[in-house]
Write a protein that binds this DNA or RNA. Structure first.
Length: 450
RNA sequence: GGCUACGUGGCGGAAUGGUUACGCAGAGGAUUGCAAAUCCUUUUAUCCCAGUUCGAUUCUGGGCGUAGCCUCCA
């Protein structure tokens, strides 16, 4: 497979990826709404689209790929969270954005080409709303502006829903201000105490979907290559984005490929804030390194559900330990053969199986394969820290001092020499409990952090 | 109710119209004072029923089951 293939949610089929312009390949991924610290579910989307970015860079070159990931920093959930936590909005969004960036670094995600904020684009959002009203695709009602879903004939195409079914099954309390229950808000009025911007419809704030329409167009153009996000964004977020943008630009072409990642689950149940079954990225990386978390997130193909549990993490941690014995700063220049597995709709499990193979070959002394192995690991964002630095991470988890370890080993050596194996084994057990592994090789004792 | 995805060995997880996935765990061996690590060898699988086919885990239909979306969510 020499061409990139991606499953396109628009057609539900695996398709060959053909960029509109190979000189400027465009990827837009929905970033976080900064009201609470990111969890492992958010991390999956982050890592999946980071991987896609890396693949595109490998194929087209770093300068020719434009990766935009937004930050939504105005939203009702943010307002609510600031009230609950009794801190002001910008302090909250700054703090969460900072934490988000820290998590991105921990997970070794590359920086996107652009990371626009919703609040920097309110003016454009107002303009888009005005134009939609002029086109009779939106209407004002009681200080709100609604998008009229009936104005877009393809509504429901992405999410495989037809408007008739949606109406029949509507479970939400429908605002009386709406002409049609499916209409969604473009602009809403703000209370005095809430953040707001002056607009033709009074002081207010934008609705949820508008920022992505505005920012994707501003940085990538009306028609761009790939739009990504979690599976749960298909409806209504992405559906509404398409409707707004297409009607606004009088086109039926918005993103050509829609890529959606599956959920992270806990006990087979979706990890989500409303269920409360979340693990934050920060918590996950307290126990396991960012690389282990990253490898775990890639251990399943991106569309499948991924159950988050200790067994998964310990297994991946073990794998990475093993692999690090073949860590090298010598990295081959050329793209490894197994890259083709990534081209097939990002088949990371198959790619990882090839890493095991390369590891095996490296270990048996094949230096070319070792260079290839190191290249292949880096390609998916592993081996970003040296073996020494990884050891430092493990060291930070251990309380016992190096001097104490060495003195214990000395005592053990003495015990071994006089044949007191009982004492020697006791000392080994003690060190084990402290998180130190002992190896007796060729008459010499070496130790390592677990 | 509508729509979508999924159901592979003890566990995780690929692939495939007929031939070894891979990893973890388990078993045996080498090694070791005993271990650990490593290496070698190795057991175990395609939800059920029908159809298409020389042949189906793979394709089609039906059933059962699980998860998700239809409301904020990555």
């Amino acid at each position: 497979m020499n061409d990139l293939h991606l499953t396109n949610s628009l057609t539900n089929k695996k398709e060959i990826f053909n960029p509109i312009n190979p000189e400027k390949v465009s990827l837009y991924a929905c970033g976080p709404t900064v009201y609470d610290n990111p969890h492992v579910g958010n991390a999956r989307a982050l890592v999946v689209f980071d991987l896609l970015f890396r693949i595109l860079v490998e194929l087209y070159g770093k300068k020719k790929v434009m990766y935009v990931r937004n930050i939504t920093d105005i939203d009702d959930k943010i307002i609510q969270a600031s009230k609950d936590k009794k801190i002001n909005i910008s302090d909250l969004t700054d703090e969460i954005t900072k934490n988000f960036h820290k998590d991105c670094e921990t997970l070794f995600c590359l920086k996107p080409s652009k990371e626009p904020k919703a609040t920097d684009h309110v003016e454009e959002m107002i303009k888009m709303t005005e134009k939609l009203i002029n086109k009779k695709a939106a209407y004002e009602s009681g200080g709100h502006v609604y998008f009229s879903v009936a104005s877009f004939k393809n509504y429901g195409k992405l999410s495989n829903k037809n408007p008739g079914d949606l109406k029949a099954g509507a479970r939400v309390e429908v605002s009386k201000l709406k002409k049609d229950p499916l209409d969604f808000v473009l602009w809403k009025p703000s209370e005095k105490s809430d953040p707001g911007w002056d607009s033709p419809w009074g002081r207010g704030r934008p609705g949820w979907h508008l920022e992505c329409s505005v920012m994707s167009e501003k940085y990538l153009g009306i028609n761009f290559d790939i739009h990504g996000g979690g599976l749960d964004l298909i409806f209504p977020h992405h559906e509404n984005e398409i409707a707004q943008s297409c009607v606004y630009n009088e086109t039926d072409k918005f993103a050509n490929y829609w890529v959606h990642n599956g959920f992270v689950t806990m006990n087979k149940e979706k990890m989500s804030k409303s269920l409360g079954n979340i693990t934050t990225i920060e918590d996950a990386t307290k126990k396991y390194s960012g690389q282990v978390v990253r490898l775990s997130l890639l251990s399943t193909q991106y569309k499948q559900p991924l159950d988050w549990n200790n067994e998964l993490l310990t297994e991946q941690s073990k794998t990475l330990d093993k692999w690090y014995s073949m860590y090298s700063s010598e990295v081959s220049e050329k793209t490894p053969d197994c890259f083709r597995e990534l081209l097939d709709d990002m088949n990371t499990p198959l790619y990882i199986s090839k890493l095991h193979e390369l590891f095996q070959q490296s270990q048996s002394g094949n230096t070319d394969k070792k260079k290839e192995f190191n290249k292949a690991c880096r390609l998916i964002g592993l081996f970003n820290e040296t073996a020494e630095k990884r050891a430092d991470y493990k060291k930070s988890k251990v309380k016992i001092s190096e001097a104490k370890i060495l003195s214990k080993i000395k005592n053990r050596d003495k015990a071994k020499k006089i044949g007191d194996y009982k004492l020697a084994d006791e000392i080994r057990d003690e060190l084990n409990k402290e998180g130190i592994d002992i190896k007796d090789e060729k008459g010499k004792t070496t130790w390592n952090y677990k």
